[in-house]
Design a protein around this nucleic acid. Structure first.
Length: 689
DNA sequence: TTGCCTCGAGATCA
DNA sequence: CTCGAGGCAA
């Protein structure tokens, strides 16, 4: 091989090989039309490998040889998406689709039914990712995460052969400076079956469904493991785009992505009007089983980009797209028993124990029945054959009873009069759907849940104190109230099963560490009913000290936006309750501290933040918005720059949005602005976490 | 609600 | 080797 290349300078030969290999990869994986066989490809690949081994200076980041063989990661970095990765609104019926179309036409001021052009794409059942190309080279791949921040999984995405390391021409001379493609990673049925066959042969457990196999593969720290699993991807849209112009329609965008060498799903269809969407949904549904991969619905998007812009985006999902889901798979099984679980606030929740069934890709054995009204409405009895499905993708539910299959000995579900855990009377106020155990802290279940909540990551954050351990501590009588945690010694802990010297010392240290906390965490950790994380953050922010919170009355609480009369009443009740006061005092005695801030030293919430407003806002004028942002300490400027924190765009926004997109400044909608104004602390907490 | 991956550490066996 | 905790995704 060396003889052959000797005539050509190594650098030129390496470049030529890379070009050729990229081309063959594209032909093979994307076009599905290879022009050389595997052996010939391997030969080229090995030539490049040895060339790079001899001349390490020739190795470039986008060399095909760099795809595999990267070292395992220590952990995943988090990355912030330049533009949030939104989710989609769902529709479960033709009627909901009609509604969607009506809303769309209303906003676009199109009377005529059938006048809006949509594009239909299969909704793949996989994981959403973003692929960031700079100057045409893949520099970062990330998971969707919460939509704002995800995890950097570049090393794993590089092992997916369908993902080009380098973009192709796409009709333009130079690739865009930044192009972020969004797509769905999934596993084809055939690859899933082959993988599971290999796993089984190797004596390892098989994956339960292709989606989990794909998700598991992407979470590998070692890319070599990911490379062994054959993953696929289809791109469906654009995120950030700098130095290029997005095509005028979604269908043209998909074509363009294809020309750039990115894999796109060939199953896509332009639909004029909602009737055509309906037909398309039915047609794809009929072919669902023959596609070779899992889909859970059809996504419909308004095709014209200009119309998409006009429709805009709500806080979590665009107004211009909707996912019509296929009906959830339904399976019959037997309801073995109903158990009443006691929650932190004493609420009794009936939980159905089912004979395990495989439905919607997982084995379901339990499902919540919510409350007694729900049980009565569905007329569920123990021993019944029930229809189970996974609603809204995740939560299993008992859809209905199969009336004809009720056995003679079916038992009615009765609300216990006494708490199943502590025996205290159960009470159900007329105006509430939930029944409650009146035992309070005398109830072991409520104590256990209170401790669990107290230790939670978002509360006192006691690392290593999980459900199992809390159960042991409470059941063993070692911990009754949160403050008891701080009195636990390593010796005591070592008496528990699976607790050695090391684990005990670690836990004692973690508990000790949690003494130093913040007022917001502490208030949240107390588990006051109707006071969640954001409520606690608001209280801490407005009152500044625990004494001030304890001394406040309902009016003072209600004066805070987002704290309503109910939460205010609960707060007053809590702090007036001697038992609760004892819990709080014991914690303070145990040495819990948090920095207390006087009002003077409180930095305004939005200090050092700069916002730009554009477009017409519906609920308030721009001046009002500006005034309120100022009061929170933020600056509001007229022009977008790199220093801008975010742009809030109302209806018919101007060029500022384009500018912001170019600079990678987040563009948010009015709903986000309103949220920021009304509960700044909560929004900041979300951003920070 | 379930399933998957990773880590730390206890348990078990040689 | 096995278990529990913790994190993530749908």
């Amino acid at each position: 091989m060396k003889r052959f290349v000797a005539a050509v300078p190594a650098a030129a030969r390496a470049a030529a090989l890379r070009e050729e290999l990229h081309e063959h990869l594209h032909r093979y994986h994307v076009l599905d039309a290879p022009t050389i066989d595997d052996a010939a490809y391997d030969a080229l690949f090995r030539e490049l490998e040895s060339l790079e081994a001899e001349h390490p200076e020739l190795v470039v980041p986008d060399s095909p040889t760099r795809r595999v063989g990267a070292a395992p990661l220590e952990g995943f970095e988090t990355v912030r998406h330049a533009q949030p990765m939104l989710s989609l609104a769902n529709a479960f019926s033709a009627t909901e689709m009609l509604e969607f179309d009506r809303r769309t036409r209303e906003r676009l001021e199109r009377e005529e039914p059938g006048s809006v052009r949509y594009i239909a794409e299969p909704k793949l059942d996989g994981l959403a990712v973003s692929l960031r190309y700079e100057a045409g080279v893949l520099v970062q791949g990330a998971t969707r995460g919460d939509g704002t921040t995800g995890e950097n999984i570049t090393h794993n995405l590089l092992t997916i052969a369908m993902i080009p390391q380098r973009l192709r021409g796409g009709g333009a001379a130079a690739p865009p400076a930044v192009l972020e493609a969004r797509g769905e990673v999934f596993m084809k049925h055939a690859d899933f079956a082959a993988l599971n066959a290999r796993m089984t042969d190797a004596g390892q457990p098989a994956f339960v469904n292709p989606r989990n196999a794909a998700a598991g593969s992407l979470r590998q720290l070692d890319p070599a493991k990911t490379a062994e699993r054959k993953l696929s991807i289809h791109c469906y849209g654009l995120g950030e785009l700098v130095g290029g112009e997005a095509p005028p329609t979604q269908s043209a965008t998909l074509d363009w992505l294809g020309e750039l060498g990115l894999p796109v799903n060939p199953e896509r269809e332009v639909c004029d009007g909602i009737a055509a969407c309906d037909a398309c949904y039915e047609a794809l549904g009929a072919r669902r089983a023959t596609l070779g991969y899992d889909i859970d619905g059809v996504v419909f998007k308004v095709d014209a980009l200009a119309e998409q812009r006009e429709l805009g985006t709500r806080s979590r999902a665009p107004r211009w797209a909707i996912a019509r889901k296929f009906p959830a798979e339904e399976v019959e099984t037997r309801l073995e028993d109903v158990e009443f679980q006691v929650g932190r606030t004493g609420a009794l929740t009936p939980v159905a124990w089912l004979a395990p069934v495989f439905v919607g890709g997982v084995t379901v054995a339990r499902a919540t029945l919510h409350n007694m009204d729900e049980i009565a409405r569905k007329d569920v009895r123990i021993g019944d054959t029930v229809v189970v499905r996974r609603a809204g993708d995740v939560i299993p539910e008992v859809a209905r009873v199969v009336a004809g299959k009720r056995p003679g000995d079916a038992r009615e579900v009765v609300l216990p009069e006494a708490c199943p855990v502590c025996g205290s009377p159960v009470e159900r106020p007329d105006d509430e759907v939930k029944a409650r155990c009146t035992g309070g802290l005398a109830c072991a279940a409520q104590r256990r849940e209170a401790i669990r909540h107290f230790a939670h990551r978002r509360a006192m954050d006691i690392e290593g104190l999980g459900d199992k351990l809390v159960g042991q501590l409470v059941d063993g009588g070692l911990v009754r109230a949160p403050a008891d945690l701080y009195a636990l010694g390593a010796r005591t802990l070592e008496t528990l099963p699976r607790m050695g010297e090391k684990s005990a010392a670690n836990l004692v240290a973690a508990i000790a560490r949690s003494r130093e906390t913040t007022l917001a965490r502490f208030l949240f950790a107390l588990g006051i009913r109707d006071v969640g994380e954001s409520g606690a953050a608001l209280l801490a922010e407005r009152f500044g000290s625990l004494e001030a919170v304890r001394a406040a009355d309902t009016d003072a609480f209600e004066a805070i936006d987002d704290i309503g009369p109910i939460a205010a009443r609960r707060l007053v009740e809590f702090f007036a309750d001697p038992a609760a006061a004892a819990v709080v005092d014991a914690l303070l005695d145990a040495g819990i501290t948090f920095p207390e801030r006087t009002l003077e030293t409180i930095e305004p919430l939005l200090a050092r933040r700069t916002y730009v407003l554009t477009g017409t806002l519906g609920s308030l004028t721009r001046d009002q918005a500006k005034e309120r942002l100022h009061r929170l300490g933020a600056k509001v400027t007229g022009g977008v720059s790199k220093k801008t924190t975010a742009v809030f765009a109302g209806d018919a926004p101007g060029s500022k949005v384009t500018k912001a997109e170019e600079l990678g400044v987040p563009v948010l909608d009015e709903a986000a602005l309103v949220r920021l104004l009304e509960s700044p602390a909560a929004v900041l907490a979300e951003e920070g976490s």
